[in-house]
């Protein structure tokens, strides 16, 4: 659990923390699309500087970001190797059988690595500085146009918010059930894979039974408190768009313009 950095909020008060979650969500998604617009060294340099600026503005230690890279390290390495050895075009430096290392291959490998790096760093910026609940709020707001096609936007976002609210509860419950079964002699740490996967059953069943009971209780409590679905509800928690959010969007547009310009310049 400890190296699952994506999805773990680190409290803080940096400019990025204070940005409106809608701004952060839109900008992160747009940035990921933008990355695929870059096709030159200059383009990647600009994107790299923008990413570094964002990372530095969060005031969260770089070590935490690097930890976030770890789980996807193998995927990155695999893709780089693929690019490196299977790019048939360009000047050939080395060739053995079907494998060859070409100058295009090297360049592609570096680009792919940079793309991965930027995407992961940017999405980590988003999750480290934004509470999951704020993200759910932003998602609800951005999905509002879907209401026109009768998409249950409010229900979905309440579901998401409740799911997030119960994550710690279910984590506690898991530890409790695991301890109880360990006390009855279950050994989760040793034995064959078959034996270990069998040990999951005494954990999962109590967790399911407990979660279902919770869901029933919660449903009763929500109905008793007058919940009748998404329409006609007002909202206590609202998002506020500030000048800094507009500024962030402007900076991003600036980067976009420069990036497009590089496509024509080089």
């Amino acid at each position: 659990m400890s190296n699952m950095i994506i999805g773990r909020y680190v409290p803080g008060n940096s400019i990025i923390h204070r940005l409106d979650p809608r701004a952060k969500l839109i900008l992160s998604v747009s940035f990921i699309i933008l990355i695929f617009l870059a096709n030159s060294w200059l383009g990647y340099l600009i994107l790299g500087l923008f990413t570094l600026l964002a990372v530095a503005s969060t005031k969260i230690s770089l070590a935490i970001y690097l930890k976030g890279l770890k789980p996807v390290l193998w995927l990155i390495v695999f893709t780089i190797i693929l690019q490196l050895f299977f790019s048939p075009a360009g000047h050939v430096y080395l060739a053995f059988g079907p494998f060859m290392i070409t100058n295009t291959g090297i360049i592609n490998a570096v680009y792919v690595f940079l793309r991965f790096l930027f995407i992961i760093l940017m999405s980590t910026v988003l999750t480290l500085t934004t509470q999951p609940l704020a993200l759910a709020d932003a998602l609800e707001y951005l999905m509002k146009p879907l209401l026109k096609v009768k998409f249950p936007v409010y229900e979905l976002s309440l579901m998401l918010a409740i799911a997030l609210r119960f994550v710690p509860t279910l984590m506690d419950e898991t530890v409790k059930v695991m301890n109880a079964q360990r006390a009855r002699g279950v050994d989760f740490a040793s034995g064959s894979i078959v034996k270990r996967s069998k040990a999951i059953v005494p954990i999962l069943i109590p967790l399911f039974v407990g979660a279902i009971q919770r869901a029933i209780d919660l449903g009763d409590a929500m109905e008793a408190r007058g919940y009748q679905g998404g329409e006609n509800r007002t909202k206590y928690r609202v998002l506020a768009w500030h000048r800094r959010d507009s500024l962030a969007v402007l900076i991003f547009i600036g980067v976009l313009v420069v990036l497009i310009a590089t496509r024509f310049l080089i």
Binding site: E173, K176, V177, N179, A180, Q181, R182, A183, R184, G185, D187, V201, P202, I205, P206, V209, G210
Partner: peptide
């Protein structure tokens, strides 16, 4: 594990360990 054999523990709301 040997010690655990001599110690029985009834956790709070132990019915939540039934499966």
């Amino acid at each position: 594990a040997k010690v655990r054999q001599h110690v029985g523990i009834v956790f709070q709301f132990p019915e939540s360990q039934l499966f």
